[in-house]
Computed example of a mutant assay.
Amino acid sequence: MKRHRASAATRIAALSTAFALICLTVYFIVIGLDNADKLASVLSALTGLTALALTWHTMRRPTEPPPPTPSGKTPDKAPAAPVRTTSKREGGTVHNVISGSVHGPAFQGHDFTGPITIGRAPDPIPQPPPPAPEGPAPAR
């Protein structure tokens, strides 16, 4: 199993948090239980307000635009015309309509038989040369 190492920023944040907790614990022991309780209430309220502000800021941050398609257009500006396919196989008629934003290949099917290749076909397997005919070599 491969272990991922924490980044330097993650390690610094963890060490800073541990150091702050140790310092607060020592400070609370020095000032007494009653004063520590009052100070902890104020710190908890400030922490809650900070978390609320960060959540609001994160929700209001604009999202990244989608990556451009091969044609250079962004997907939200791509034409929304439906893709129509018609198949007349085994005497039946099938009409498929795919509408909306379709990014990449769309596969629909029922009762597939035989080998199916999606994407580029594999390179053909080289065949060995035919065996030489047996018997005496023809005279020249």
Rank of each mutant, 00 (worst) to 15 (best):
A8T: 10
S87F: 07
F107T: 14
R120F: 05
L33Q: 13
M59P: 00
A132R: 05
P133F: 01
C23N: 14
I31W: 02
K38M: 03
N96Y: 13
T86C: 06
P66V: 01
I118V: 15
G91K: 03
V83I: 13
E90V: 03
A53C: 06
A8D: 07
E64H: 03
Q108N: 08
P131M: 01
A13Y: 04
P131Q: 01
A18L: 06
I29S: 07
F112P: 00
T50S: 14
A8Y: 05
G119D: 02
A20H: 15
P70I: 03
R60S: 08
K77T: 12
H95Q: 07
V26P: 03
S71V: 01
S101V: 14
A36S: 12
T25E: 14
P124T: 13
P75F: 02
P136T: 04
A53Q: 01
A121E: 11
A78C: 04
R5G: 02
D123M: 08
P130Y: 02
P130E: 02
F112K: 02
A20I: 15
S87K: 10
D76S: 09
T85I: 13
L43N: 01
G135A: 05
L43I: 07
H57V: 09
L24H: 07
L24C: 08
T17V: 11
D76K: 04
A132D: 00
V102I: 13
P129V: 02
L43Q: 05
N96H: 12
I98Q: 09
I116R: 04
P68N: 07
A45F: 14
S41R: 13
D34R: 15
E64W: 05
A81T: 15
E90G: 07
P136V: 03
G72P: 01
V102P: 00
N96V: 15
G135N: 03
V102R: 07
A40R: 13
I125Y: 03
R60G: 06
T113N: 08
G48E: 06
Q127M: 09
G114F: 01
S87E: 11
G32L: 03
P65K: 04
V30D: 01
A81M: 06
P82V: 02
L43S: 04
L54C: 10
T63M: 10
K2I: 07
N35P: 00
T63L: 11
T55D: 04
R84Q: 08
R120I: 10
D37V: 07
K2F: 06
I98D: 13
A78I: 01
E90W: 06
C23K: 15
M59L: 14
S7I: 00
D76P: 13
I116P: 00
P62G: 02
A121T: 11
A137G: 07
G104C: 03
A20G: 12
L39F: 06
T47G: 11
P105H: 11
R11D: 00
A139R: 11
P115T: 12
A40W: 09
A6E: 05
K38T: 05
K88W: 07
N96Q: 12
P70W: 00
G100E: 14
S71A: 10
R89S: 10
K77E: 11
V26F: 14
D111H: 09
G48R: 13
P124K: 08
T85E: 10
S44C: 07
G119H: 00
A106S: 10
S44T: 09
H4G: 05
T69K: 09
A139G: 06
S87V: 14
A6R: 12
G91H: 03
I12L: 12
A20R: 15
P136N: 06
A14L: 07
P66C: 03
L39I: 11
D34T: 11
